[in-house]
Design a binder for these strands. Structure first.
Length: 425
RNA sequence: AGAGGAGUGGCAGAGUGGUCGAUUGCGGCGGUCUUGAAAACCGUUGAACCGCGAGGUUCCGGGGGUUCGAAUCCCUCCUCCUCUGCCA
């Protein structure tokens, strides 16, 4: 969540940023935040001084009791009753101030970076670059992946429906091997780029959900095991970033670079339509995630570095891709700047989002209480970033569609050592 | 899952109702000594919030309670250890 002090210091910039997110009347909203914070401070001052008074009296009583002056102690005791009830009232007022301040801050998204274009929807995203060869498929061999997987019997949706429900496919034979190969390839590449591999839990508690911003914003998007109060992760970002919740790192420890493979679970409530057939949208899918914790001065160069890492994966897989700078209206709640990577899938003739790389600046670390000690020995909030590198299903879709031919589907060279075969046929 | 024990500052470990934010040791930082280092000695050493400052408030696993006053008593949750049971 946003820091009130930052809002104070950069009021105009903050308002402008929220306008980019199409938030109506940001001036009034942020003014309200500052007023609530003022109220909070004022209440704290009142409470603290009264508490100090009460503490002093208690101390006096202690001393009197010690020296045997019972009666004097009793007299002072009587005075404390009034103060005590006042303290209690102020205490309640303070926590109600704090709660409503937190509530309103939870409802305000991150301030977009200067470079974020204004815009309402995905149509206003800015194409930063496009690379790779868009394949020209013959009209007789131009199938969408949901037909190809049936033909080669490598992913079975019906079987998944039987076991679980829609959106939980069963990968079979070479389809299953392709999953395994991609995961290993992505993890190896991440390791080469200096990421430390971790395998985190795929269920998280409520606190973790709040800390990275999935809660309360995306409550309905996560599966929940209500008996135990745990959520299935929508992305490895949540457990991996939460490894650093309530930590104070040394500046020399930065950047922290972690990568992990996990299945991801999304309810995608109300998100289904004709364009989400096959592997385009699932309730469970596999993803390798890269996460960095950086010094605030380094987070934007790091974002570029991460974007480049993802692009290199796509280049190695020989997939045509483009990079989008998301507009204010399409960007995630907690992000300050997001690049989406899309691959062109020739069977559907559509661009498919396969990665999203974001800088959250201090929005997450403020909730996480993730800080580091700087050279002046001050504890300051670190910046957090993450990105998919990569999400599997749409990569699989594009690989199948783009590499199809009469002979079968040719696997990209880099995957062959992982797969042990070259063709799905 | 059942029975018992325990959670205190970076770590170890005192403290069972009143100057306890907390004895002490180790570690860390600064200094004396030294050509330099070690040893020794001296000093210093948690965090958050409010305040220009002086200073104040809060924090002894989390939350709640008793009390004029709680690390210390009570309730509850969490975690760890030991034993028993179960199980990839």
């Amino acid at each position: 969540m946003l820091q009130v002090n930052e809002i104070r210091e950069n009021f105009e910039r903050a308002c402008e940023g929220l306008r980019k997110r199409n938030i109506p009347n940001p001036d009034a909203l942020l003014q309200q935040v500052m007023d609530m914070d003022d109220k909070r401070k004022q209440t704290q001052v009142e409470r603290d001084s009264l508490q100090a008074e009460s503490n002093a009296l208690a101390k006096q009583i202690g001393q009197l009791m010690k020296s045997g002056k019972r009666e004097e102690a009793e007299t002072i005791k009587e005075q404390t009753a009034a103060i005590k009830s006042q303290v209690k009232a102020l205490e309640e007022q303070y926590s109600s101030c704090e709660n409503s301040l937190t509530q309103i801050l939870y409802s305000i998204p991150n301030i977009p970076h200067e470079s974020v274009p204004a815009g309402k929807s995905a149509e206003d995203n800015e194409v930063v670059l496009q690379d790779g060869q868009i394949p020209e498929l013959s009209p007789t061999q131009k199938f969408p992946h949901w037909e190809l997987i049936k033909k080669y019997d490598i992913v079975d949706f019906e079987l998944g429906v039987k076991i679980t429900g829609a959106g939980f496919p069963v990968y079979k034979g070479k389809g299953a091997k392709l999953q395994r190969a991609l995961v290993n390839f992505f993890l190896d590449e991440a390791e080469k780029a200096g990421y430390h591999e971790v395998q985190p839990p795929i269920m998280i508690n409520e606190e973790s959900g709040y800390a990275t911003g999935q809660l309360p914003d995306k409550e309905g998007q996560m599966y929940m095991a209500s008996e135990d109060g745990l959520y299935l992760i929508p992305t490895a970002e949540v457990p991996i970033t939460n490894m650093y919740r309530n930590e104070v790192l040394a500046e020399a420890d930065l950047p922290k670079k972690n990568a992990g493979f996990t299945p991801c679970f999304r309810r995608e409530a109300g998100n289904w339509g004709a364009h989400v057939r096959g592997l385009n949208r699932l309730h469970q899918f596999d993803k390798v995630e890269i996460v960095q914790i950086t010094h605030p001065d380094k987070s934007y160069p790091t974002l570029e570095e991460m974007s480049l890492h993802v692009q290199q994966l796509l280049q190695k897989l020989k997939l045509p891709y483009r990079v989008l700078r998301l507009c204010g209206g399409d960007m995630g709640f907690t992000s300050a700047l997001t690049y989406d990577m899309e691959v062109f899938s020739a069977g559907q003739e559509r661009w498919l989002e396969v990665s999203s790389v974001s800088n959250f600046e201090t929005y997450q670390s403020n909730r996480l209480k993730l800080r580091f000690k700087n050279q002046d020995r001050k504890t300051v909030l670190a910046h957090t970033l993450n990105g998919s590198a990569l999400a599997l299903p749409r990569i699989v879709a594009a690989l199948l569609e783009n590499n199809q031919s009469e002979r079968g589907i040719k696997m990209p060279k880099v995957l062959v050592p992982y797969l042990g075969f070259e063709w799905i046929s």
